[in-house]
């Protein structure tokens, strides 16, 4: 495991912002940390980076205590937007960050190249578009070839093209075997990129599994006439309005059974819950 937390908790007064969160991130995976705004994602991430001290519980990052130099030097992070000096160029900002991480000039240029910012590296940071700022943030996170990349809402404020660029960048990093912990409230983003997902709501981790497991078994929707007869013929089916739902089996077999029984089959299609539906079910319940 690259990251593990055990009942990690942060309280401000009586309010638990993060409440006994136990999660684990495996080497080589893209882990989606999913939750609505204010759910406790950023506070959890800040605790993993040592910026915020937990009230109770524990965490290990690459086998080290969070916030120690040994842990931080193996982690690259972008938290709630990039923090850079507005009067410096993108390249100089990276040079400043690289000096703190003990990374040389070559590392800076490589990071700029990785996020496709070489052409604009000489421009002042304050003149960058939001997308360029986010990419520079990712470049800073990549300095020193970290074992773990923590990206907190990396597509926040980006236009659709910028979001797509960022997703492509994360995908490319994942393809190179980079472990990524990606926090987001954008379900499509997580569904597209992540291998496993942790869902947090009101400070509590309410689910942790693969996206597939989270969605649950897929089902078939069948519209047939007469519906009651089809319902009797197909074991385990449930009636939803003018259709049947049944756990996904061989659709061909089901159709043959119905046709053989003189039932008209009007529609058969897979019925899959989206991550969005699952998310709202979970966070609504929480």
């Amino acid at each position: 495991m690259i990251v593990t937390t055990e009942k990690l908790t942060k309280r401000y007064g009586d309010r638990a912002v993060v409440d006994e969160v136990s999660l684990s991130v495996r080497r080589g995976e893209v882990y989606g940390f999913l939750g609505p705004n204010g759910a406790g994602k950023t506070t959890t991430i800040r605790m993993l980076l040592g910026l915020v001290k937990p009230t109770s519980g524990s965490a290990r990052v690459l086998g080290e205590a969070p916030g120690t130099p040994r842990a931080l030097l193996k982690v690259g992070s972008l938290i709630e937007g990039p923090g850079f000096y507005p009067y410096l160029s993108g390249r100089d900002n990276l040079r400043v960050h690289a000096a703190r991480r003990g990374v040389g000039k070559t590392g800076v240029e490589a990071a700029l190249e990785q996020v496709d910012l070489v052409g604009a590296a000489g421009e002042k940071f304050r003149r960058y578009s939001l997308g360029m700022k986010q990419r520079l943030g990712v470049a800073a996170a990549l300095l020193g070839q970290p074992e773990l990349l923590i990206l907190d809402e990396p597509t926040n404020g980006l236009d659709p093209a910028g979001m797509a660029d960022m997703r492509d960048l994360v995908r490319a990093l994942a393809a190179q075997g980079q472990t990524v912990l990606l926090s987001s409230h954008l379900l499509g983003e997580v569904e597209e990129i992540c291998d496993r997902v942790g869902v947090i709501a009101q400070g509590r981790l309410i689910a942790e599994s693969t996206v597939e497991q989270l969605r649950g078994d897929s089902q078939l929707l069948i519209r047939a006439d007469p519906l009651e007869k089809a319902h009797v013929l197909i074991e385990g089916s449930t009636v939803h309005g003018d259709a049947l739902h049944v756990r996904e089996k061989d659709a061909g077999v089901l159709v043959r059974v119905l046709v053989a029984a003189d039932v008209d089959v009007r529609e058969v299609r897979p019925l899959r819950r989206t991550l969005e539906e699952v998310f709202f079910e979970m966070t609504g319940a929480a």
Partner: peptide
């Protein structure tokens, strides 16, 4: 930038 500094190492 303090956030960036304190997570640098």
């Amino acid at each position: 930038t303090w956030k960036t500094t304190l997570t640098a190492g």
